[in-house]
Each structure stands twice: as structure tokens, then as C-alpha cells.
């Protein structure tokens, strides 16, 4: 009955996790108001928790391109959209929706 993402999907989920971690960290470190930055970073981490964890991290993972919170969220969303639909978790679209909403908040309302 149980079903796990394919290796290709796992690699992309791992990359999406890294972008979301970077977005949360950027929010916490660079927001002019640390209360807002910490709270928005928490929301990003909460959304990231909807993705499966990826066991076995690489030792030397290539550095992510620098960017602001919205850049990292957009990269995370693009990465999730690259996952072949039937190879990822069944609720992948719902996970992507949460990231999409955070991106909208970061770009339209300036939440980050």
C-alpha cells in the first residue's frame, strides 16, 4: 500500500528543501524587522514540513545561487514543478500550493 517517491523525485525534493531552508534563513537574517522575518521564516519551515524528508544528504552539495526570500521560494516552486507528477508524493500539488501562497505573500504584500 505504501508508496515512496522515486530517486529522481527524491533528489528534486531534496533541492526544494534546500531552497526553502535558504528562504527561511534569508527571511530571519535579512528582514528589516526581525519579528516579521522570524515569523515569516517559521511559515516557510512549516510549509517545508509538508514535503517528505530526504535521507542521505550529500557531503558537498553545490551552493545555491544567492537571492532574496522570493527568489528562493520561486526556485523551490520551480523545483517542485519539475517533479514528474506520478513519481512524487500524492499531495505534492497541495505542498506546492503552500509554497505558491508564501511566494505571493513575499512578492505582493512584502511580507518577507
Amino acid at each position: 500500500m505504501t508508496r515512496t517517491p522515486s530517486p529522481r523525485a527524491n533528489a528534486l525534493i531534496g533541492l526544494a528543501h534546500r531552497h526553502l531552508d535558504a528562504a527561511a534563513e534569508t527571511s530571519q537574517l535579512t528582514a528589516p524587522d526581525h519579528i516579521t522575518g522570524d515569523a515569516f521564516g517559521g511559515l516557510i519551515q512549516l510549509a517545508a514540513a509538508t514535503l517528505p524528508i530526504v535521507d542521505e544528504a550529500l557531503d558537498e552539495e553545490p551552493a545555491l545561487p544567492a537571492g532574496d526570500v522570493a527568489d528562493h521560494l520561486r526556485s523551490a516552486l520551480d523545483t517542485l514543478d519539475q517533479i514528474p507528477p506520478l513519481e512524487g508524493p500524492t499531495d505534492l500539488q497541495l505542498c506546492a500550493w503552500h509554497v505558491h501562497e508564501l511566494l505571493r505573500m513575499a512578492t505582493q504584500t512584502g511580507a518577507a
Binding site: T36, A39, L43, L46, A47, A49, T50, I53
Partner: peptide, 24 residues
Amino acid sequence: GLTSLIKPSADFITASRGLFLALE
């Protein structure tokens, strides 16, 4: 990375976003 392998519910995530925007 601390996890219980349980995902947060969509309702809680949605409510959290709503609370964030209201407080801001």
C-alpha cells in the same frame, strides 16, 4: 530537521498564514 514524520495539516498551515497577515 527534528521530525516525527508527521506532516502539519493543511488547515493549520492555512490558519497560520492568516494569523501572520492579520498580526502584520
